[in-house]
Simulated assay, not measured.
Amino acid sequence: MVFDFPDTARFLTPEEKLRALRRLRADNQAPAEQEKLSRKYVFAACKDWKTWAYALQYMGVLCPLYSFSLFLPTILLGMGYQGTKAQLMSVPPYAVAAAMTVFIGWLADRTKWRGYCNMVISFIGCVGFAMLLATQNPRIQYAGTFLGAMGIYPCVPNTLSWASNNVEGVYKRGVMVGIVVGWGNMNGVISSNIYFPREKPKYTTGHATVLAFMFACLFGGTILTHFLLKRENSLRKAGKRDHWVEDKSQEEIRMLGDCRPDFIYTT
């Protein structure tokens, strides 16, 4: 069983619970007391512009992700592969994407450059889908699937981690991530209805739509979020948000969460 907070963890001794709470207070990145469920956290997440910025990015991730399995078999068939060989040839793009996902996870965790990672990876994905759209040569299209997969799959955990990094509070974070994931998954409806059999094997409508989603929502949304967060960090470091905590007690300031002037966003 996973416990919500140190003071509810039965496997910790009283001294260990106290030590964990002190570390949370010293870290200054999470409330050092157990939160109580309240609708205010739901409203706070819904009113936070970051929720919808990450939802925009995530719809740019999951629309192409759900479409991937719809056109890859057609490309392999055009290359002359069928049955077991076709199944085997579908593995390499996913394998490369898996390796890239691990690498981006490691890099983003070490550098905190989640925005930059999303920008680079999503641009690679856009190049891949542009290749799919521009040619009917199945071998070039197959090469494009590698770039497309590399541009999609690493952005899934990186975007969700980025969203989680930039919100404080158990319930607000839960609501925000829930909205982001739910909104993104709704785009599977779009993916399943844009690859028309009559357009096989080029799938102009499908690839063009996915490319637009990746470029506008994922790549563009990442750039927008990155620079808005950098701007907010600059304002906080310059002391231009200090008026938010005027005439407030230490407890009230702490409960502001990521709205505290000393909370610096991951960009």
Rank of each mutant, 00 (worst) to 15 (best):
V170L: 11
E168M: 07
S122N: 01
R25E: 14
N166L: 00
A97V: 03
M255A: 09
Q82M: 06
N185W: 08
R260N: 05
K17S: 15
P138T: 01
L70I: 10
L147V: 00
T209R: 10
L132F: 05
M186N: 10
V245P: 13
T84P: 00
W244T: 08
G182T: 12
P157G: 05
Q57V: 07
V189Y: 03
T51N: 01
F71V: 00
L228S: 09
F146R: 08
R198T: 14
Y58Q: 14
T84R: 02
T209A: 13
F3M: 12
S161V: 03
A216D: 09
R39D: 03
R241W: 12
V210L: 06
I179T: 03
L56S: 12
D262N: 08
T222E: 09
D262I: 07
E168C: 13
E251A: 11
P93W: 01
R254Y: 02
L21M: 15
R231Y: 15
Q57L: 06
G144N: 07
F43E: 06
C63A: 13
I253N: 01
R22W: 13
S164K: 01
G184T: 07
T222D: 14
A208P: 06
V245T: 14
Q29D: 07
D27Q: 13
L18N: 15
P154S: 07
E246A: 14
L56H: 13
L65A: 15
Y171I: 03
R22M: 09
P138V: 01
A134R: 04
L133E: 00
M176P: 03
G239L: 12
A238K: 12
M214N: 09
N193R: 08
V170S: 09
S249A: 04
T8C: 07
R23N: 13
K17Y: 13
P64M: 11
S38Q: 07
A108F: 01
G239Q: 12
A86I: 01
G115M: 04
G128E: 01
G148N: 06
N158R: 09
F213S: 01
T101Y: 00
P64R: 08
Q34G: 06
T159E: 09
P6W: 11
P64H: 06
I190A: 11
G148I: 12
Y41D: 07
L12V: 08
V102L: 04
D242G: 15
F213G: 02
N233M: 08
E246I: 11
W162N: 07
K50C: 03
D262P: 03
R22F: 11
R114G: 03
R254W: 06
M186R: 13
M79T: 02
S90P: 00
M186D: 14
K202L: 14
T51H: 03
T111W: 11
A163F: 09
L256P: 01
T8A: 12
V245F: 07
A30R: 14
E35L: 12
Y66N: 15
S191W: 00
K85F: 04
A130N: 03
R241A: 13
P14I: 10
P197T: 06
V245G: 04
G78A: 02
T135C: 01
D7V: 13
K50S: 06
P64W: 09
P154C: 04
V170T: 15
M79W: 01
E251I: 11
K47Y: 10
F5T: 04
M150V: 02
Y66G: 11
V2A: 15
T135Q: 00
M150I: 04
I190P: 09
C63P: 08
G182M: 09
Y195D: 12
G221I: 14
